[in-house]
């Protein structure tokens, strides 16, 4: 446990993680399947243009996928998000997303629940890249809230 958190404090390791997730993004293929929700994130900036899909069933995120044209920070942060939130309950995922947004806003956060995603802890220093680091996370947050809305019906 302590060795993992030491690793996640090492800038070299964090840089490598971003690099790996950018060059070999995980869950990087969309599916044509009606049981998936889909969010196209293209209106925040004229640069990043990604689509995130997820299948949420009985309060659990069964799968997350994404694809699109995006920078290192957008791609890697979305890739890590997909790894981290896949298999989590909607409640757990929402809490992790909140912790992640706290980190991005330079507020108090719990690094343990964010795992590799702590690689983006310094993004707040580059204000123009906050959109990049949150684009996939916002898409997932939107799908969670939509799924909760549809459960009520």
């Amino acid at each position: 446990m302590s060795s993992t958190s030491e690793l996640l404090n090492n800038p070299e390791i964090l840089r490598e993680l971003i690099m790996d997730h950018y060059q070999y993004p995980h869950n990087h293929k969309l599916v044509e399947d009606d049981s998936y929700q889909s969010v196209h994130m293209a209106s925040d900036s004229c640069i990043d243009d990604i689509t995130v899909q997820s299948r949420i069933k009985d309060g659990k995120i069964e799968d997350i996928r994404f694809d699109g044209v995006a920078c290192t920070i957008s791609t890697a942060s979305t890739s890590m998000m997909s790894d981290l939130l896949k298999g989590k309950s909607v409640d757990e995922a929402s809490s992790i997303i909140n912790q992640y947004f706290n980190m991005i806003d330079a507020k108090e956060y719990d690094p343990d629940v964010l795992e590799e995603a702590v690689a983006f802890k310094n993004v707040y220093k580059q204000a123009n890249r906050i959109k990049c680091a949150t684009i996939g996370w916002k898409a997932m947050q939107q799908m969670i809230s939509e799924s909760e809305g549809s459960d009520e019906h």
């Binding site: 840089r15 971003i18 690099m19 950018y22 290192t72 920070i73 310094n122 220093k125 580059q126």
Partner: peptide
Amino acid sequence: SIENAIGIFF
């Protein structure tokens, strides 16, 4: 390079 572009965050 990609390395240097990511490097600005550390």
